[in-house]
Amino acid sequence: MVISSLVISSSPTAFDAVCDSIGKMPKIEIVEKQDSKLAIVLETDSTEEAVTIASEIQSLDGILNVELVSHFFEDEQKQEENQ
């Protein structure tokens, strides 16, 4: 389990569509919407999966920026060590 949170900025005109698309994506919880910005939490199996989702968001129409706020990866760290 890897948990991370992000802030996403979109252009005001695309905001509703962006919220809609992100709302439909799996493993994402939208926790705040304001001024064409979204705060989201991702719960993924790995960092890689989180990055893939972040990149997908980045490529949506109207997205201006995707920024990382926090990243918790203790379980992944342990798994990698065991391998």
Binding site: I3, S5, V7, K37, L38, V69
Partner: peptide
């Protein structure tokens, strides 16, 4: 924790 950090940064 992750959520409140994100909201605060937003």
């Amino acid at each position: 924790t992750a959520a409140s950090l994100a909201v605060s940064s937003l």
